Amino acid sequence: MADVNRGNRPLSPHLTIYRPQMTSMSSIMVRITAIALFVLAVFPVWWLMAAATSQDSFAFIDGLMRSWLGDLVLFGATWAMFYHMFGRLRHVIWDFGYFLDVRTSENMGIVMFIAATAFAVIVAIVF
């Protein structure tokens, strides 16, 4: 059997020298927004079920959704929806083989954030 000295081997330095890239961070954010949207889907379902059951339960959830906290949650959900949509669009573009160079990919990550924010603000102003 090979003489393996496991106690004196150096640890992998990847955690000390790794620097997160825009492409990896934006891809992780696409996954996080998908999970957040899945969790936030409870609110419209709750609102519709309350509307179908009683006036008191509907008044509670409707008041919650129309409060400043509800507005904040809905704005965050709108931002997450747009960010996730732009992220999926970016992956479709990459699947077709376009814009795969590093500089353009990083710029697309920045544009995704700016576009999602701009679209969410527009929706908040219009509605």
Rank of each mutant, 00 (worst) to 15 (best):
Trp47Val: 09
Thr33Ile: 03
Ala2Val: 02
Phe119Gln: 04
Ser24Asn: 03
Gln21Thr: 09
Ala51Asn: 07
Pro13Arg: 11
Asn107Trp: 13
Ser54Lys: 04
Met112Phe: 00
Leu89Gly: 14
Phe86Tyr: 14
Trp79Ser: 01
Ile61Trp: 05
Ser57Leu: 08
Ile122Asp: 00
Val92Pro: 04
Val102Thr: 14
Arg103Phe: 11
Met65Asp: 09
His14Phe: 06
Ala115Ser: 10
Val123Thr: 08
Ala36Lys: 04
Thr23Asp: 00
Trp79Asp: 03
Pro44Phe: 09
Pro44Asn: 09
Trp94Ser: 13
Asp62Gln: 13
Tyr18Asp: 09
Ala115Gly: 01
Trp68Gly: 03
Ser105Asn: 12
Gly97Phe: 13
Arg6Ile: 08
Ser26Phe: 06
Phe43Met: 11
Ile28Gly: 03
Asp62Ile: 02
Ala34Gly: 13
Val39Trp: 12
Thr16Phe: 01
Thr16Val: 01
Met81Gly: 15
Ala59Thr: 05
Ser54Met: 02
Leu74Thr: 07
Ala120Lys: 04
Pro10Val: 03
Ser105Leu: 12
Gly87Phe: 07
Ile32Val: 15
Ile28Leu: 14
Tyr98Phe: 15
Ala118Trp: 01
Ala59Phe: 02
Ala2Cys: 00
Phe43Tyr: 15
Thr33Phe: 11
Ile122Ala: 04
Ala41Thr: 14
Gly109Ile: 02
Val45Trp: 14
Phe75Ser: 05
Phe82Ala: 07
Leu72Ala: 13
Met81Arg: 13
Leu15Thr: 07
Val123Cys: 07
Trp46Ser: 12
Asn8Ala: 12
Arg31Gly: 15
Met85Ile: 08
Ile35Phe: 15
Ile17Asp: 03
Leu89Cys: 12
Ile32Phe: 15
Ser105Ala: 15
Thr33Trp: 10
Thr117Phe: 06
Phe82Asp: 01
Asp56Val: 10
Ala50Pro: 05
Trp47Glu: 07
Ile35Asn: 11
Asp62Trp: 06
Met22Asp: 00
Leu64Asp: 00
Ala59Tyr: 01
Ile125Arg: 03
Ile125Val: 10
Ala52Gly: 13
Ala115Met: 08
Val92Gln: 09
Phe43Gly: 02
Asn107Cys: 06
Pro10Cys: 03
Thr104Gly: 04
Phe43Cys: 01
Ala2Tyr: 03
Ile17Cys: 00
Ala77Cys: 02
Asn107Phe: 09
Phe58Lys: 04
Gly109Lys: 05
Gly87His: 05
Gly70Asn: 07
Arg9Gln: 07
Ile35Gln: 11
Tyr98Cys: 10
Gly109Phe: 02
Ala77Asp: 05
Phe119Met: 14
Ser54Gly: 14
Gly76Ala: 13
Val123Ile: 08
Met29Pro: 00
Pro10Met: 02
Phe99Gly: 11
Arg31Lys: 09
Ile93Ala: 14
His84Tyr: 07
Gly63Cys: 04
